[in-house]
């Protein structure tokens, strides 16, 4: 009976457009989209270069990148905390317990995923295109922009996966953000806090929105895939 009441209250919060609820959603989206975007700027070229470059120790770098895909968020949070704390190398910027700190933590979390998956996609494409592009007088490195463009649809899916990872994690952002009400409180950290406080309607409403976002991201990824098959073959 209690669950039913909580669920009804949660839906009521969503439908009433509760400003506190939607401020949390807005900040969560802002942090995760910024982190995914900045990570993409760094990771897509790096992943592509790793896909086409051949150098001593490449296998080790690939294993490392693949391994970092499974980074525990709390470890990332701890590393980011040490970097940003007053005595850390980035302490002078005073970023700890700010949204920027949460963005940094999510970049550390998402970038290895983007690098590893981009590397795989671009390497497969390079295997397919190598002869054609070499015959067009394009080397591995000059071919990278073309490879990234032709891999745009799987890369879009990879970016969405990265966003999903960023949006759904709680361990890192709670350490470096501090879960400060109205400032660094995100959907995931709010769910953890409100559940522990027994405020289930708010936790449930955030959970519903988070699930909705994850489903929307997956639906979008699927749509892109189907559309790409029709448009680019």
């Amino acid at each position: 009976m209690r669950s039913l009441v909580d669920g009804t209250d949660a839906l009521g919060l969503i439908l009433s457009g509760d400003p506190k609820l939607f401020a949390i959603v807005r900040l969560s989206l802002l942090v995760s989209l910024t982190a995914t975007g900045l990570a993409a700027v760094l990771a897509l070229p790096l992943g592509a270069l790793l896909g086409v470059a051949r150098f001593r120790g490449r296998d080790g770098v690939i294993v490392l990148c693949n391994g970092l895909m499974g980074l525990p968020p709390v470890v990332v949070g701890l590393v980011a905390f040490l970097l940003l704390s007053r005595s850390g190398p980035l302490g002078a910027f005073g970023l700890l317990f700010t949204p920027q700190a949460m963005v940094l933590a999510q970049i550390i979390l998402v970038a290895p995923i983007l690098i590893a998956l981009t590397r795989q996609v671009v390497e497969d494409l390079w295997d397919e295109y190598r002869d054609e592009l070499t015959a067009m007088n394009l080397g591995a490195f000059t071919a990278v922009p073309a490879l990234l463009w032709d891999a745009r649809f799987p890369l879009a899916t990879i970016l969405l996966a990265g966003f999903g990872r960023a949006a759904a994690e709680v361990g890192a952002v709670i350490i470096v953000g501090g879960n400060i009400d109205g400032y660094t409180r995100l959907m995931t950290t709010s769910i953890a806090l409100e559940t522990s406080k027994g405020n289930l309607p708010l936790a449930l409403s955030l959970g519903i929105i988070l699930m909705g976002l994850v489903l929307a991201v997956n639906a979008f990824a699927w749509t892109i895939r189907r559309w790409s098959e029709a448009v680019a073959g």
Binding site: Y129, D131, E132, A135, A146, D150, F153, A232, G233
Partner: peptide
């Protein structure tokens, strides 16, 4: 090539 690779365009 015998089996030319077509760019995804």
């Amino acid at each position: 090539f015998q089996k030319p690779a077509m760019l995804r365009r």
